[in-house]
Simulated assay, not measured.
Amino acid sequence: MSQNPSSPTSAPPTPPSAPAGSTSEDRSARVAVTVFPVLILAAAALGFFVPAAGQAISGYTNLFLGIIMFAMGLTLTIPDFSLVLKRPLPVLIGVLAQYVVMPLVGFAVAWVLQLPPELAAGVILVGCAPGGTSSNVINYLSKADTALSVTMTSISTLIAPILTPVLTLWLAGAYMPLDAGEMALSIVKMVLIPVIAGLVIRLVLSRLVDRILPALPWVSVAGISLVVIAVVSGSADQIVSAGALVLLAVVLHNAFGYLLGYWFARVLRQPIRTARTTSIEVGMQNSGLAATLAAQYFSPAAALPGAVFSIWHNLSGAVLAMYYRRTAQRQDADPR
């Protein structure tokens, strides 16, 4: 759920070729990211106080996520993947950090906080998910490398059917049993096929898709909101008993993702702008996917960290964007 929206739990990426603030898609994406946490909080409240609403749609979360990922595919173009050939090292570093830093941080947070098995599995699964597409908009607002962010998100999403179930089985298997093969197949159905379908349609019907691009962030917002309603409605008791603990786990997971993602790139001698891009890309997860998979393969309680992450990483991402943008402006004014 980003996607964000994150994750493909979040708003679709801003086209890297677009000048800052030049398109209605840019403006729509920025508004969606700003309003998204409020809408997700409202969705969580609805699921908590009116659980019947969430239970009525709980069987459709896979469909909602597929729609989100299809919308993401519609925002992609072939040039978004060209950086893999033009700048392979920063792309490799970002994707490697995505699937090394966040899974291990999720495992460490679960161990340090001594989380119950269901919550521990949910936190680890969030860490094993690919990057969320709201990271692309946060990078744009941060004056970081948006084109690199789009490529990182795209590549991490395309390899998720392999790495997400393998890493989850390795790190969370001790907490909860998992059929990694079935999870991989689900990710192919919910993520890979819709993304590729959206990309193909963008190639074939580019003029038509260009007209609807400004509406796509709101498709993602609506989709992840519905996922959160369904997840929260099935976890009301766990929210009451362990809500503060889950929030603490999510805050730590997200914060260390930003920090370690930045230094992962810097230690490998990447420039500051690339390190900031990696920081945001690593810290912001497709938590909508994580919540959906957790509910399907673990339990409703295991989906709770993904739902909370969907809210938190957009709030923290907006704050981080303001910080990065201000420091970038100071560096532009005084390169020393």
Rank of each mutant, 00 (worst) to 15 (best):
P214M: 13
V219K: 08
V228K: 00
S233G: 07
V227W: 04
S220R: 10
W218D: 12
P214Y: 11
P217I: 10
V240F: 06
V227N: 13
I224P: 02
I224Q: 11
V231P: 02
P214S: 08
P217L: 11
A236E: 02
L226W: 01
S225D: 07
S220A: 15
I229T: 00
S235V: 03
V231G: 01
V232M: 04
S220Q: 13
I239C: 05
V221Y: 11
G223R: 05
S220Y: 06
S241R: 14
P217G: 10
A230E: 13
G234K: 02
I239T: 02
S225V: 01
A222M: 13
V232Q: 03
P217H: 09
G234L: 06
V228E: 03
V240A: 13
W218N: 09
V227R: 03
V228I: 15
G234R: 02
S235Q: 06
I229V: 15
Q238I: 08
G234V: 02
R211I: 06
W218H: 09
A230K: 08
S225Q: 04
V228P: 07
V227E: 05
V240K: 09
I239G: 03
I224A: 07
D237N: 12
V231Y: 01
G234H: 01
A242M: 13
I239H: 02
I239A: 02
S220D: 12
D237K: 12
G234P: 03
A222V: 14
A230N: 12
D237Q: 15
G234E: 00
V227H: 07
V219Q: 08
S220P: 07
S241W: 09
V232K: 00
V221I: 14
